[in-house]
């Protein structure tokens, strides 16, 4: 009577363990099951009592079959992982590359920002040497430096070069001077605007091109 209850308890436990252990490689599964069987047999034969209460306690101490199987899978890296398929989050990020182009453009407005961008640019493995050179040389110092430098140069040039022409006298030296009146500095505003547009737009275009290439390459490298 008691014996059959005990047998049923043990068999039920072993069946649960066997079911849970399907993911364990066959040789390890056989080994694990035989070890647990030995453990149970040893417990019941060792004068520790084989009555129902003793067996229940022993099985409780052995623990949940799922936990045992989890431990068996944990230290077996070659086993098929319990989570199906390769993880999708493995794709290498382009955080470094994004950081590089941000620092080369917007970041150049803060002190040393552009230099940080250059360092990031050259430490990336996703760009070719020619692309790194392009990113560095398109506007050395970045739009930030070019803007500050340009503004300083414009005001300095405007103040330094007096206009010569028919209508000079009172308004000489000002940028609003009509172009036909000051042939010398008259080209400066137009040139300045073109330069301004270039230093603003070119780095952004280059940044977009660089980012697109980096993204294209991670797609190839990724799983």
């Amino acid at each position: 009577m008691t014996n059959s209850t005990v047998d049923r308890l043990v068999n039920h436990y072993l069946t649960r363990l066997d079911d849970a252990a399907q993911a364990v490689p066959p040789d390890r599964r056989i080994e694990l099951l035989s070890e647990i069987r030995e453990h149970i047999a040893a417990s019941m034969s060792g004068g520790r009592g084989a009555d129902e209460l003793a067996v229940r306690t022993m099985l409780d101490r052995l623990g949940d079959p799922a936990d045992i199987v989890a431990a068996a899978l944990e230290d077996n890296p070659l086993a098929p992982p319990s989570n199906p398929g390769p993880s999708l989050g493995r794709r290498p990020g382009i955080g470094l590359e994004v950081g590089a182009v941000v620092m080369l453009t917007v970041g150049s407005l803060i002190p040393h920002g552009w230099f940080v961008g250059v360092i990031l640019l050259w430490s990336s493995g996703l760009w070719r040497r020619s692309e790194k050179l392009l990113g560095t040389l398109i506007v050395p110092g970045g739009p930030g430096l070019a803007l500050f430098g340009g503004a300083a140069a414009t005001s300095w040039l405007g103040a330094a070069q007096p206009c010569v022409g028919p209508v000079t006298s009172t308004i000489s030296g000002q940028i609003v001077t009509p172009a036909q009146a000051c042939t010398g500095s008259g080209l400066a505003p137009a040139l300045g605007v073109a330069l301004l547009l270039f230093v603003l737009i070119a780095p952004i275009v280059v940044a977009i091109v660089l980012l697109n290439r980096a993204r294209g390459r991670t797609a190839l490298v990724g799983p």
Binding site: H39, G63, D75
Partner: peptide, 25 residues
């Protein structure tokens, strides 16, 4: 069996005795 019991009796070391077998393996 004795090894597993002694480990589980060392305070707080083992929650489930069965998990010691994969470790031994």
């Amino acid at each position: 069996f004795d090894l597993v019991r002694r480990l589980s009796e060392a305070d707080g070391m083992v929650i489930s005795e069965g998990t010691i077998y994969p470790l031994l393996s």
